[in-house]
Design a protein around this nucleic acid. Structure first.
Lengths: 191, 191
DNA sequence: CTAATTTCTTTACAATTGTTAAGGAATTAA
DNA sequence: TTAATTCCTTAACAATTGTAAAGAAATTAG
């Protein structure tokens, strides 16, 4: 049930069995269907999700248009993290792209762990740092590369997602329209 | 000497006087002139800097062109954070935009503090989380807004920087060319 | 299986940006 | 102060993207 989760967190912090038990006492497993919204716009995000199986995406609703901020694959911690950290209304939406199996860590239980298992600060510090590094990479890609180069890069790094995710979602992740992505793909395949 | 620094970190973590002393034992003050490079491309970033007075910027060298990733004002923790965290060669440059006064926290001393003052994990967790939130905001701005809207937003949030920083640096921060920024400013002022 | 919906591509046109080059303004250095 | 450098704007043109609309293909729902 928590095998992947254990493996992932123990890569970063050396938790003892008793400590793992303490952590897992507050967790639960949740299965959601495709297109299920875990966090809605305007609501406070009160949980962090570890993706056991499936795909999640974080997105903005821009006057009806969906703009993808990030796609979470297996073994990543997903959440509307800004909303979770500040316990403030989310400006992002978190939803599943496939039928997805999640491990749920509630905010209140994380606070409990912070007090009773100080190592938890280390773990969450590392999770935050990694999400920061990721965010920096995506931002750098926008600052340094053209949409076309960004598509090539995406192809290299996330070949699997090209098959799992509709192209218009990838387009919005790359910061372009589906029409433009279609043109880029057309150009690319011919050369 | 460390007043601002103390005030800032105590906003987040309740350090006792003795603990503050322990932290400050490993810090030093550094004054650098304008355009001084604290971190060079390819070198490992071995320090975190707290900006006491002045301005720093994080940038990429893209085939000779300078692309600004972030601008650090007073009371922020600046660094090539990815390089610092992973102690790997930096793909970013960190340099001063003005004569700048910094408080320097060396990597080795942070490791020492992690071991001898566990609360340090909390502080650095919060610093990482805030840099993440910032990074998310900048990325959202790129995904959701046009360059023109991004300039308006910048004007609102960082009016002071328009006077302190050359426009071509702001242009690269907004992800556009100086020529394009000039056109946007021209359009904006007329309407 | 059929109908409805979603997804993807293509086209034509408008709008914006990038590029290159040139000149003037402002700042910095000698 | 003068000379050199940096900074900013403008112009013209090419390239790219966005928008709107339409239709084909694929997927989903009943």
């Amino acid at each position: 049930m928590f095998e992947q989760f254990r493996k992932e967190i123990c890569r970063h912090v050396d938790f003892k069995d008793k400590e793992l038990e303490l952590i897992e006492n507050g967790l639960c497993l949740r299965k959601v269907p495709k297109k299920y919204k875990l966090v809605e716009e305007g609501k406070i995000c009160r949980e962090i999700y570890f993706v056991n199986k499936g795909l999640m995406r974080l997105l903005y609703d821009k006057e009806g248009d969906e703009i993808t901020a990030f796609i979470f694959k297996e073994n990543l911690f997903a959440s509307s993290y800004s909303s979770f950290l500040e316990q403030s209304p989310s400006i992002q939406i978190l939803e599943s792209l496939e039928e997805t199996e999640l491990i749920v860590l509630p905010y209140d239980y994380l606070m409990f762990l912070y007090e009773n298992l100080p190592k938890m600060h280390i773990l969450i510090r590392i999770v935050a740092e990694q999400r920061f590094i990721n965010s920096q990479k995506v931002l750098a890609s926008h600052l340094l590369k053209t949409p076309e180069e960004r598509y090539w890069e995406f192809q290299l790094l996330h070949k699997d997602l090209l098959k799992r995710v509709p192209l218009h979602i990838i387009a919005s992740y790359l910061g372009i329209t589906p029409v433009s992505l279609s043109r880029i793909r057309n150009r690319t395949h011919k050369n």
